Simulated assay, not measured.
Amino acid sequence: MKHIFAFERKEEYEKHQDTIQRFKKKLKEYQQILESEYALRDLPKGIIWTNEELATTVFSEIPIPAYTNNNLIYMSPDIETWRNILVKTLDGNELPYVQRFYENFSDNQVFIILAHELTHHSDLFLDEFEDERVDSIWFEEGMCFYLPRKLLLSEEEFNDVTFVEMKLVEAFKDKYGEHSIDDFGIMSYQGNLTSIMFDYWRSYLAVKHLVEVQANHNVNDVFKEYHNWHKEGRKVPLSQYFGINSFC
């Protein structure tokens, strides 16, 4: 993959140079895991390292400065940007533990966001980037967080971020949880930051439940069922097929 730097000032690049180099090395290691175990065959052509403003107003209108398409991953490496974004998702709610976690959001947790974007390129996911990407976006988004978190974070880091997202789903389920998890899609991005992230939090927790509870920690069995659902013609919503009514 090419690494392309899109900063408006040289000083901005220099500020993030060390972080980018660390992330590049770690991503190469994670890439090898995906290639050997999770059907990563076609890499994106490159990563565009940039800042929040360019990522969300010039390259795209997606309000989160990390995303991918068939050819490129866009990523802000700035940890303060991510801390500020994530604190905003509390939307004024008093969640002291969550706020402290986000105010001290770690370098490792930011890297997971980048690893999430690369995971989207696995051929285990059935929808192509140019497709409408309906019916199972929650599964892909949830799995793209579950895999790198489970594979790359320590047990403590994994449990911490899981607990935080459980608390956030509990806090916002009455306000943002009326729609089905199967409705996660393009319409999700028409809400505010918290409603957008709610779908990500809920999707991650749903996939974690599928892998660790229903499949007894066998992620391959979960992918097998996901592929069976597709082969059978997607006759019912994926959440119904998996029987995870509590996440609907």
Rank of each mutant, 00 (worst) to 15 (best):
L90S: 08
S122P: 11
T68V: 12
E80M: 13
G92W: 04
I113L: 14
G142C: 05
N104E: 11
N108G: 04
S76M: 07
E117P: 11
E141T: 06
N70D: 15
G46S: 02
F111V: 04
F129A: 02
Y102V: 02
F105R: 00
L114W: 12
L118M: 08
D42W: 07
D107A: 10
L95A: 11
L126Y: 15
A115Q: 12
N71H: 13
F139S: 01
Y146G: 01
E128V: 06
L54S: 14
W82K: 00
N70S: 14
F125Q: 00
P77K: 01
F59Y: 09
L124N: 09
N51Q: 08
L126A: 13
Y97R: 04
P77A: 10
F129R: 00
Y97L: 06
L54C: 11
N51A: 12
D123V: 04
I48Y: 07
Y97S: 06
S60M: 11
T57N: 12
L95T: 07
T81K: 10
E53D: 15
F129V: 02
F105H: 02
Y97W: 03
V87P: 14
I137L: 13
L43R: 02
N69G: 15
L124Y: 14
E117M: 03
S136E: 06
F145M: 00
N71S: 13
V110A: 05
E52R: 13
D127R: 03
Y74A: 04
P77Y: 09
D123C: 10
G92E: 01
K88F: 15
L95F: 09
I48P: 08
E132V: 10
G46T: 01
Y146T: 01
G92L: 05
L118C: 07
H120S: 03
C144W: 05
E132M: 10
S76D: 14
G46Q: 00
N71L: 11
L54G: 07
E80V: 14
Y146N: 00
N70M: 12
W49M: 03
N108S: 10
F59N: 00
N71R: 05
Y74G: 03
E103T: 07
K88I: 11
L43N: 04
S76G: 09
W82G: 02
K45Y: 15
V58F: 15
L86W: 13
L95E: 08
E52I: 12
E130I: 10
N108C: 02
N104W: 09
P63F: 09
I48W: 11
L72E: 12
G142E: 01
E141Q: 05
N93H: 15
N69D: 15
N108R: 04
F105N: 00
S136I: 02
Q99L: 12
D131G: 06
F59T: 00
E61M: 10
N93P: 11
D123W: 11
W49A: 07
W82F: 12
R100Y: 14
A115I: 09
V98I: 06
M75N: 09
I47A: 03
A55V: 06
